[in-house]
Amino acid sequence: MENYSIYVPKLITKKENFAPGHRACIGCGEALAVRLAFKAIGQNVIVINATGCVEIFTSQLPYTSWRVPWIHTLFENTAAVASGIEAARKAMIRKGVIKDTNTKIVAIAGDGGTIDIGLQALSGAMERGHDFLYICFDNEAYMNTGIQRSSATPFGASTTTSPAGKSSFGQFAWKKDMPAIAVAHNIPYVATACPSYPFDLMEKVKKGLEVKGPAYIQVLSVCPTGWGCAADLSIKVGRLAVKTGIFPLYEVENGKYKMSIDFPGLRPITEYMSLQKRFRHLKPKMLEQIQQKVIEKYEELKEKAAACEYNCQTVLED
């Protein structure tokens, strides 16, 4: 762990807006990501939650893990529900029905609920410019229904609907670049984060909250159950996703790209993949192909950041 940050945890609020007693799997990276995000968000918020793991493991009648106002309606409409809440408060504040408390609107969903079935509603809400933060907790498949592939599932991963077999190497498409889609909506803030880098994640969530207009953050959330890794490796696997360049951490503020962390050399992807059952079937040739693509994409991203005349800062060192 990074030495300089050893005493930083003490600066973080002890207040948990997300109560223990939730029913997430053992070692759930998404539960951790949600917990950290809502430490950063605080209590002056209304949460809109898509159907999915988080919704299920934090809500079972007559209980709730949430200590902030929370609503779940359906799977694909989270951004639309958020639009309605934002507009309602705007109108009611203007008409003097409620006080202006600067309450934040935060929509949360998984990768399926965001990048597949929820994409239209999200695109609409971003295009209309509602003042809200949307966080996609990306665990790279439909985990809640039993590890089916989504368009966020990485190339080569074996899932229950993209199983590796005699005539299949697993997921046949490259992960959809959702942050780029969000950027294409010309929204003020887009970022990627991972709970293995908790302070970076919390900083970004705070930034996303503060900007006027839509903000989109995609948080890689390690899923020991779906990825086939040991529960205690959740943090390490997330860290390796970043250090291999598979899930780079960056921000796009008003269209300007900026790397959050850069490494002199990327770790080989096998360090990341060998810890997970979902990649275990991949042959060396395939791994080489993936490695090439990862480097290519990473370089592309760095070029974008360089073109934005930002210095790539080494925020966290190895």
């Binding site: 029913r23 009648l61 893990s65 949430w66």
Partner: peptide
Amino acid sequence: VTEPGNASQYKT
């Protein structure tokens, strides 16, 4: 549900 965080009653 009107009792915030009452899932903390649940023993995991």
